[in-house]
Computed example of a mutant assay.
Amino acid sequence: MDRQTQTELEAAAFRRLVAHLGARTDVQNIDLMILAGFCRNCLADWYAQAAAEKDIAISKDEAREFIYGEPFADWKKKHQAEATPEQMAAFEAARKKSHG
C-alpha cells in the first residue's frame, strides 16, 4: 500500500471515530478515560498537536469544536453529566494503573 492511500484510510477511520463518538453522546468522557485511557478531549488535543507539527495554529477551543461538532461548552451543557463518586474512584484507579 502506498503512503497516500494509507493516509487516506487513516483519515477515513479517524473521521468515522469522530462521527461515532458524536452519535454516542450517552458515552461520557470519564467512562472513555476509565476504559480506554483517552476521551474526546484527548482527540482534540492530538488534533491540535498534529496541526502544530505542521505549523498550523489551532486553538484548544477550535480543536474541541472540530471533535465535538459544536462549541465544547454547548456540548457539555447538553450531554455531560456530573461524574459520580464511583466514576471518579474508577478514574483514579485507572490513572494509577496506567502511570504505575
Rank of each mutant, 00 (worst) to 15 (best):
D74P: 02
A90G: 05
H99M: 15
V27D: 00
D61F: 06
M33Y: 05
N29F: 02
E62L: 07
M88A: 06
E82Q: 13
S98C: 08
A52W: 06
V27P: 08
K77L: 12
A73N: 12
L32K: 07
L43P: 02
A94Q: 12
K96D: 13
I56S: 06
D31W: 01
Q49D: 08
P85E: 06
K97V: 04
L35E: 10
A36M: 11
E92T: 10
A51I: 05
E62Q: 13
A19G: 01
M88L: 13
C42F: 02
W75G: 03
N41I: 05
W46M: 04
G22T: 12
W75V: 04
D45N: 15
A48E: 02
L35C: 12
Q80E: 07
A12Y: 12
S59I: 08
Q80V: 04
R40G: 00
A57T: 15
A73Q: 07
D26L: 02
T84Y: 08
L32T: 04
A51Y: 06
A90K: 02
V27A: 09
D55A: 12
A36D: 04
L35V: 11
L9K: 15
D55P: 02
A81D: 01
V27Y: 01
R16M: 10
L35N: 10
A52R: 10
Q87L: 03
D74E: 11
D74L: 09
L21A: 14
A44R: 01
K54A: 13
R15I: 00
K54I: 06
D74Q: 15
F14W: 06
A36L: 15
A11Q: 15
A93V: 02
V27I: 14
E10A: 07
T84G: 02
A94W: 06
R40H: 03
A81E: 01
K97R: 15
L35A: 14
W75K: 05
D61H: 05
P85F: 08
A12T: 13
A89Y: 05
R15F: 05
Q87V: 01
A93S: 12
L32V: 00
R40W: 10
P85Y: 07
F14C: 05
D45E: 15
I56V: 11
H79S: 11
V18D: 01
F66Q: 00
E92V: 12
P71E: 06
A94G: 03
R24H: 13
K96V: 10
Q87T: 00
I67E: 01
M33A: 11
L35Y: 08
D26E: 13
E82C: 09
K97E: 14
